[in-house]
């Protein structure tokens, strides 16, 4: 499974490399840029909703999440904030487990096509993320010498922090509406089960807690609130 994750990233990076090289060939474009415009001043706020959570729940009813995302441009970079809520509920035979909580991610995206006149984005980004969540479990804990033990435990205010490498796109689909996705490679930095009653199983926003490396995929629909025209150079022809 890990191998296929790496394959995905290799393919994405190869495509990314090919595409970014194509962007550098500016001789075919006759760009002009008004040098009086300050490219570093933000020109808009893009606010989006993650639609992959509700879709994923249709195939995997144990898991659901809802997420809002926002980014603001600073020349070729974006400051990004993502907040969400995630739930995991399993109920198999006599055992059950649930995890509910909220998570956030903050970070920066570097846009490799910052001069795209449609404000499309093809980015590589870094995130720092955190989650706070409550867990419950109940069921039989087998023991080879002492008989099985009935567990009925609750653990509140567990927390986790992780870092992510993201790659993704935002594509203008109509007027100020954009669609796009993030492919995420998540690396768990810290997981603390505050009450120490049992080991966490599911971290909202991250996934399976015992994995030090996870990956994720989110698909967003965005609306861009523009308050200023972005100083994009235009084609002469």
């Amino acid at each position: 499974m890990l191998k296929s994750h790496f394959s995905l990233w290799v393919i994405i990076l190869l495509l990314f490399g090919h595409f970014s090289n194509a962007q550098k060939n500016e001789s075919e474009y006759a760009y002009e840029l008004d040098s009086t415009l300050n490219e570093w001043k933000p020109t808009g706020l893009r606010v989006g909703v993650d639609v992959s959570g509700p879709i994923y729940t249709l195939f995997e009813p144990t898991t659901n999440w809802y997420e809002l995302a926002a980014d603001m441009d600073f020349h070729k970079f974006f400051a990004v904030v993502e907040v969400g809520r995630g739930n995991y509920n399993s109920n198999v035979d006599t055992s059950s487990y649930s995890s509910r909580g909220a998570y956030y991610r903050v970070g920066v995206d570097a846009n490799f096509i910052a001069r795209d006149p449609n404000l499309n984005v093809f980015f590589f980004g870094l995130r720092y993320a955190g989650a706070s969540f409550n867990e419950k479990l109940s069921g039989d804990l087998p023991s080879s010498g002492w008989g099985s033990q009935m567990l009925n435990l609750e653990q509140n205010k567990s927390s986790a922090n992780w870092v992510e490498m993201n790659i993704g796109m935002r594509v203008r689909v109509w007027k100020s509406i954009f669609a796009g996705y993030n492919a995420r490679l998540k690396m768990l930095k810290h997981n603390e089960f505050s009450e120490g009653k049992f080991q966490s199983y599911y971290i909202p926003g991250y996934g399976r807690a015992e994995r030090t490396v996870n990956w994720g995929f989110d698909y967003y629909i965005y609306y861009r609130f523009s308050w200023k025209k972005k100083p994009i150079p235009w084609r002469k022809n």
Partner: peptide, 15 residues
Amino acid sequence: ALPLLVDPKCGFEAL
């Protein structure tokens, strides 16, 4: 002893 869920289909074990 720290209980953990191996997988919903597998149940619990203790670490």
